[in-house]
Design a protein around this nucleic acid. Structure first.
Lengths: 340, 340
DNA sequence: TATCCTCGCGATAACGTTATCTCGAAGATG
DNA sequence: CATCTTCGAGATAACGTTATCGCGAGGATA
């Protein structure tokens, strides 16, 4: 006898497989077979079960399935900010979706404690794997999780204190490209403003810039300004660079936030008179003035590679940790071609 | 005897509560009590259990807990595009986090089938509730889920075919504000380009614009252009509006994507000569030229309200569906103050 | 001193699925 | 016609946790 979904005696509760089995007059196991498209089920049994499923509005409980099978079919992504433009996250989602996996995205908000909270929570959920854009400066607390078999891949930066797969852009080559591009357009005093050297990418990019200066026999003093990305700090760095004894004629910005802070502080007029190459693409680049020449990261490659590294680790937990460096490309749009 | 995490006889498997109980020499239930901070556990027992937990690197399995307790502590958000700027999603995450809930975000990518897939998957996961930015034009397939007690809140638009809580901006007032602002600055031929009238917000905004024209005794013919937001369609609408017999001197754009398409087609020069008020804020608004006067939505209020509506429904599944209209505000930045 | 609580812990049964095993009924083979 | 295989379905035991119940020890009360 069919029983409508809403009215099972006061308590609203979803029907389970046993309910469906009772309704269809078959064994529990048979319902499970039908739900999982097991071919070894007779057509009339299948039909009876299907009918019972629609009659009761049965929906399998994914949690129970996950508990029993051990796999969640979900990968976690702990990114710095959800709700902001993040092309790598889009690539992760597409790649994951293409193989039938669900993405659980969370935002660390640049907060180390929050990052830890999220990662531990993801481990407790026994996700199939985790991709993280690291914030914290020490991830040693993740070692037991890795040892316990939790696949972990970092994106954009490696994690300190543990050995894990990592995919990131070629920071050194990108900064080198930026410098050479400005140099080729006649600039001789080129300055760098970027992220703090406490973070890995900040260290790599500042070091690459110093190396580029050195390779051209230019002294570095007064030209390299890594540090926190705040409007005040960036403004101070700009003042130092542009209003000193020997003002710089060109600028390399080390992160997207640096670029935006620079543009906001200078305004379009002053910025247009400067040679500028920005590391990392800027949203709405075609609508911003001056039109920015950027070192573009292959964000979709990065996201896809992160998922692939994760899958490789899931398939073989014993494989050695691997670091993939993704090339970058220069996109000329004008700001880098301003003559000295 | 303590057993290190990695080497339990070939198969790498995480320890469970029974392992901890055996290690600590207590009952399974006691471990559960310690994990859940149950105060009715003696200090020396608690210490023994804690020691066993760190010795084995035990991490509770959230899936089993969820299955047993019935609640997941997770709310789902099916937004149009993850990985793009989406302030409402940020507000949802903060609000959810503040009350200890996890956010499972997924991207519908403006695809109706994908939306359905995501929502059904979320229902199968028995999330505590779902917030959706609807895409599809008919959500009747969700009726059984709602009847089964799945809390569902729509954001930005109502869902057709079912009755559910909804939070959205005051479209009519926003369009009215935009029109009046331009009218006050002397514009008499004001055009509208916006989203298709097949979607709810597109209908509301186009209707509000026609009403505004009517209220000022202006005819609507040739001035109201709802439709798909593609570069081609927007370009055609712009041509019709600006190069006709009586060219419009001002423009109201109905969505962010419309605004961007308009700016891209006109270029900064031509756009600056036009009065423009855009519905919805634009990312990096301070760096774009012309500086856009916009009707800004209170995205954080919308996100917060969505979570609150969801919680209210979880608390009382029988309450009548409620629609919350969030006010909008005009932000003048220049483009709306261009004289006719 | 006997009785009644209270407190702290342990045994055991769920939660809703899938996996292993068993078993009866067919059809194939000698 | 007897036996062997195959096939499809059912009973039952997990998965790892929490909730219900029970039970023994200890302090308070008459």
């Amino acid at each position: 006898m069919s029983r409508p979904a809403g009215g099972n005696g006061g308590r609203s509760k979803r029907p389970t497989m046993v309910d469906v089995a009772r309704e269809a007059g078959v064994a529990l196991r048979t319902v499970s077979r039908v739900v999982n498209n097991d071919p070894t089920v007779g057509p009339e049994y299948a039909a009876r079960v299907e009918a019972a499923i629609v009659a009761l509005n049965y929906r399998p409980d994914e949690r129970a399935r996950q508990l029993r099978t051990g796999v969640t079919g979900t990968i976690g992504a702990a990114v710095r900010r959800i709700a902001e433009v993040n092309p790598a996250l889009a690539a992760i989602e597409h790649t994951a979706r293409a193989s039938g996996q669900t993405l659980l995205a969370a935002s660390t908000d640049f907060d180390e404690a929050r990052e830890r909270e999220i990662l531990v929570s993801m481990c407790r959920q026994r996700l199939d794997g985790i991709i993280v854009e690291p914030i914290g400066e020490n991830h040693a607390y993740l070692e037991p999780e890795i040892e316990a078999g939790m696949p972990l891949v970092s994106m954009d930066r490696p994690m300190a204190g543990i050995s894990a797969d990592c995919v990131m852009s070629d920071n050194a080559a990108g900064i080198g490209m930026a410098f050479h591009h400005l140099y080729r357009h006649g600039h001789r005093r080129i300055a760098y403003i970027g992220d703090s050297e406490r973070v890995y990418s900040g260290r790599e990019r500042a070091a690459a810039f110093r190396a580029a200066l050195g390779a051209h026999g230019r002294p570095a003093e007064g030209l390299v300004h890594p540090g926190e990305i705040t409007p005040e700090r960036v403004a101070a760095a700009l003042e130092a660079v542009l209003h000193g004894a020997e003002p710089a004629t060109a600028l390399v910005t080390g992160t997207m936030d640096t670029t935006l802070a620079v543009l906001r502080h200078l305004g379009p007029q002053a910025a247009s008179r400067l040679g500028i190459v920005a590391f990392d693409e800027v949203p709405l680049a075609d609508l911003i003035r001056p039109a920015l020449t950027v070192v573009a990261q292959e964000t979709s490659t990065i996201g896809r590679t992160a998922v692939e590294l994760l899958r490789a680790r899931i398939a073989d937990p014993a494989r050695p940790a691997q670091t993939v460096i993704v090339p970058v490309t220069l996109k000329t749009r004008g700001s880098g071609e301003v003559p000295a």
